[in-house]
Structure formats: C-alpha cells, structure tokens
C-alpha cells in the first residue's frame, strides 16, 4: 500500500515518494519491533547463566548492524548508491570499534598460552 502510494506521487514530486517510503519503513519497524523484545529477554537470561560477558558485545553489534542496514537500504531506495556504501562502511567501522576490547582479551589469553 505504501509502495503504490509512493509510486502515485513519483511523477509530480519524487521527494514526497521517498518520504512516504520512509514513513512506511518507520511504521512497519515500530509495529514489528515489540515482537522482538521477548526473544531478547530470553537471550539475556541465557547470557546470565552461561557465557561470561561476550554476549553483550553481540547485542551491541546487532544494534549497530540493524541501524546501519536500515540507513543503507533507505539511501539505496532514494537512488544514492555511493552514499549507501559509505553508510555501510560507517556501520562496519562502528562494529569493529565496539568489538575491539574483546579482541584484546583474546590476544592476552593467546599470549598467556604461548609464553
């Protein structure tokens, strides 16, 4: 429904068609996202019992990836391919930065084993 509304307005003003697409993305996101919260609560319980702290990094990476993915696809919808790849690059850089402490821990453990 959102797509045909945006196609309807494509001829007169392309900007409005993109804005309608954006509104559709936001609406669907807010309708679907509450369904996810029980899953995340379950994963949190698992994290408390089993693994140490690595799962919090997983949460961070998931959040960043989700936000970067939405932004990138929106740029691609608007036709700006280069901008989309830049946004994706930014998302990857943020993920790498957020996982950095984990990598350092692994390196320390490896050093401990070798020496």
């Amino acid at each position: 429904m959102v797509c045909c509304l945006s196609l309807l307005l494509k001829k007169e003003s392309a900007a409005f068609s993109f804005l309608i697409l954006l509104a559709g993305v936001l609406t669907v996101f807010f309708l679907v996202f509450p369904l996810m919260s029980p899953v995340l609560a379950l994963v949190e319980q698992i994290e408390k019992t089993l693994s140490g702290g690595a799962l919090s990094y997983l949460f961070k990476v998931l959040g960043i990836a989700l936000a970067a993915q939405i932004a990138q696809e929106l740029c691609k919808d608007a036709g700006a391919g280069a901008l989309a790849s830049m946004v994706e690059l930014g998302g990857r850089a943020l993920i790498l930065i957020s996982v950095f402490p984990l990598v350092q821990d692994v390196l320390k453990q490896v050093e401990g084993l070798l020496l």
Partner: peptide, 23 residues
C-alpha cells in the same frame, strides 16, 4: 512540514534501538 513530522519518528526509532540493545 513532512520532514519535521518524520524527524521525531526517526529519533524515536534510534532511541528504541539504543534501549533494546543496550548500546
């Protein structure tokens, strides 16, 4: 007008993501 309406929704989107994933 439409952009001002959407900006509040977009900020709400990112706040939701931040809360849920404890970013």
């Amino acid at each position: 007008v439409v952009l001002s309406m959407l900006v509040t929704q977009i900020s709400e989107l990112f706040v939701t993501i931040k809360d849920l994933f404890q970013l």
